[in-house]
Nucleic acid binder design. Structure first.
Lengths: 191, 191
DNA sequence: TGTTCAATCTTGTCGCCGCCAAGATGAGGG
DNA sequence: CCCTCATCTTGGCGGCGACAAGATTGAACA
């Protein structure tokens, strides 16, 4: 398990294999298959553990920040980005639909727990904006999540460098952001 | 090449193989290796072609929209999301750092051309916001791109459903968004 | 027309992979 | 003492990317 995590970051997701893990531990090539019926099960376990430390990373950043909603949101986003940059291959695995089995309840619970952190952060933000409906809250959560997720992906894929001016990626609410971005301009052309 | 693209969407990135492509065409297992020295070269070619149609998709959405910056931005984001949902596996390949060789000038040019579309969209937005510095423009581009990219990834990974209320994912400018989100609140705690 | 030559494809092989089956080992409880 | 179960080993299967060596083909050229 630990060997799997370290080999994952060392070799990358595509070059990780059960046989290399076994060799690294010093056992025969088929030994891991007793603990994990297939490679998919091992990746599921790694991803579930990853979501655990992902959640803890965001929470610890939040605990070090003031209780104010704005600071809490910034701290969570900082934690999101920090995890992605520190363990990029694990991060990619955690959001790789093809290689994980989300029917696995352990993985589902771990992912949901991490998601709840973001949801809890977004609620007071929505309150401050006067948004009360469930759909409005979900929209804000999606916008915040998209911002953090896209920024993290673009950074670890080398498409953009971390913007030192805004230490954490930040996001914005409202169903139609462009109206917010450019107030007084014509509304959406083709809704 | 065409077979590769269709097999990519049919089988997924992880299950695509040179041998399956060869078998699908009806040639021997080693025939593709004459045209593409390695699997990586084929994936590079597919990704470069993908960036081409990605760019064209955004441009065609933009041409169908009013010339106003807000509408153009919305149209481009709609094109971004449409491409990702229509060709999810190709989209994931195009942003997969491990399986592509970005030293390849053809791929680099194709990616840069697509990026220029977004940059061109963001410039008038920055102008409207009174942002003149190059760093400011880059910040806005990063924010817009992050929003679109994260939203697209979360949608194709099944983490969120497309929000019918905001037909395209929307994004926001400004280096520190939280100050914008929550005006009058204390500024960044730990810059 | 006949020859040459480069592009293209085939066949065969290598090592690595996930997976499966059968058996060895070894500790704990009747 | 023996049974049982967890754990590991050995060996083998087909599929994979990559490589090597040879066959086929068709256009260019004298």
């Amino acid at each position: 398990m630990d060997t799997g995590l370290s080999l994952l970051e060392e070799l990358g997701l595509e070059d990780l294999s059960l046989r290399k893990i076994a060799a690294s531990i010093g056992v025969s090539h088929a030994a891991p298959e007793h603990h994990f019926p297939s490679l998919r099960h091992l990746l599921n376990a790694l991803a579930a553990e990853g979501f655990g430390s992902f959640r803890e990373g965001m929470l610890s950043h939040m605990q070090a920040a003031p209780l104010h909603p704005a600071d809490q949101l910034r701290a969570a986003l900082r934690g999101y980005l920090a995890f992605a940059t520190e363990k990029p291959h694990l991060f990619r695995l955690m959001f790789n639909r093809n290689r994980l089995d989300w029917e696995d309840p352990a993985l589902g619970a771990a992912g949901e727990a991490a998601r709840q952190v973001l949801a809890a952060i977004c609620r007071p933000v929505a309150d401050r904006l006067g948004i009360e409906t469930p759909e409005g809250r979900v929209s804000i959560e999606h916008l915040v999540w998209s911002q953090a997720h896209g920024y993290a992906h673009l950074v670890i894929d080398g498409k953009i460098e971390i913007d030192s001016a805004c230490h954490a990626p930040n996001s914005v609410p409202l169903p139609d952001l462009v109206n917010f971005l450019l107030p007084g301009e014509p509304a959406d052309a083709k809704t």
